[in-house]
Design a protein around this nucleic acid. Structure first.
Lengths: 215, 215
DNA sequence: GGGATACGGAACGGTTCAGTTGCGGAACGT
DNA sequence: ACGTTCCGCAACTGAACCGTTCCGTATCCC
């Protein structure tokens, strides 16, 4: 519905004379929405604050979206993630590169704050959750899965048994860490996940030990 | 401050005649607060809804707490977790028992919903975060740490290298799963974390492989 | 018994926000 | 040139909620 509305307004059949919608206003409003979302969370986010923060009037928002929910979903979907998985030649190098992007660079700290800000709202809004999935969750999972699959193809590791779980490790632990201990993520934190959990896990062969060692 | 207020009201020096505070109202209100918190999250939680849900009047709440924040913190702190780590004789057995408690039983599904409901509010309220830590995060970590330490003492596994990280695995992955895919947690989910991630990780010896296998 | 206080319930003023409308001005098509 | 539509801004109505106050009733200490 969001995309449809966008189509109506841009290539609409009922556009005659008059001033056009200013595309720079769209971008400014979406940016402001994501920035405030990361700062104060979805529930405390107000349309008025978004407008003010973008130097716009509320009417400019309601000319484009039906309200907060539609604007935030559209902002999330417009937020293009970097999909390209790195290829440094080794699994450790690829993971380190992903970690470097995730902690140091500009995009990802916003991503994780947005995740925290959206958390409480996701269970009650399927559209929000779908956009959250498409732009924040799945790209990470795909990049990680590609890195592991390349390592398998190189013969560096055996096929990963629970790939779904393994590619969730970094985002899950980063999110948990942000909830339990708010503030900036130490770059070494992601590194210790890689070195302390992921690499030992995927480098170890399949384990088939006895369950009862103390008869 | 919350505990101090409680002391003032119960053993207060300035209590003369008149009807006493009904302790059953305290419990009903705290229960209602946690139940609604799990359902709709902290931000949408209203004092009015808590009172109505507990069959009480708002005045009964404001006689005890200064507002929503203090009530929720007090409710969290009154929520006594089961600390006792199981001791089945094997690491796998202990972990399976923890998993059984976490997914099937009554207390823990509420716990995880409360965690989701609190998520967006934690970064901006240190008292809330402290209570969250004390009653929802640390007990889980302590139980898991105790289980691993006993396994080390039995000689079942080598000392766990990144214990802080390893004991975060279950809560982090469960929380992440709840956010990304709301609804009930499949009991098999926690089991696959144990079998697919934790056990392979702690059973594998320290890994010291070469970083560059493709010269 | 009598004064004091808690109880559920209802009402009230104050604040915040949603969503709409009007204003003066600017940008577009015809 | 002219009408149409966008722009930022401000004002407005209505809803939701907070925190307080009052009511009639019930419970406690003295």
């Amino acid at each position: 519905m969001t995309i449809a509305q966008e189509r109506d307004e841009r290539s609409g059949a009922e556009r005659h004379g008059g001033r056009h919608l200013d595309a720079s206003r769209d971008a400014a409003l979406r940016d402001a929405a994501l920035r405030l979302l990361a700062q104060i969370g979805y529930d405390r986010l107000t349309v008025e604050a978004i407008a003010t923060s973008a130097g716009a009037g509320k009417a400019t928002i309601y000319r484009r979206w039906s309200g907060k929910a539609e604007l935030v979903v559209d902002a999330l979907l417009s937020h293009k993630p970097r999909l390209e998985a790195p290829d440094t030649g080794s699994l450790r190098g690829d993971l380190a590169e992903l970690a470097r992007r995730a902690s140091a660079h500009g995009a990802e700290p916003l991503d994780t704050s947005v995740m925290v800000g959206l958390a409480s709202a996701l269970p009650r809004d399927p559209e929000l959750r779908a956009a959250f999935d498409e732009r924040l969750v799945e790209p990470h999972r795909r990049s990680l899965a590609a890195v592991f699959e390349r390592a398998v193809a190189r013969g560096e590791i055996a096929p990963v048994a629970h790939l779904d779980l393994v590619v969730s490790l970094i985002p899950a632990l980063v999110l948990y860490r942000l909830l339990v201990q708010p503030g900036e993520i130490d770059p070494g934190f992601v590194e210790s996940i890689i070195e302390g959990v992921i690499l030992p896990l995927v480098l170890a062969g399949p384990v088939s030990l006895q369950t009862t060692p103390t008869p």
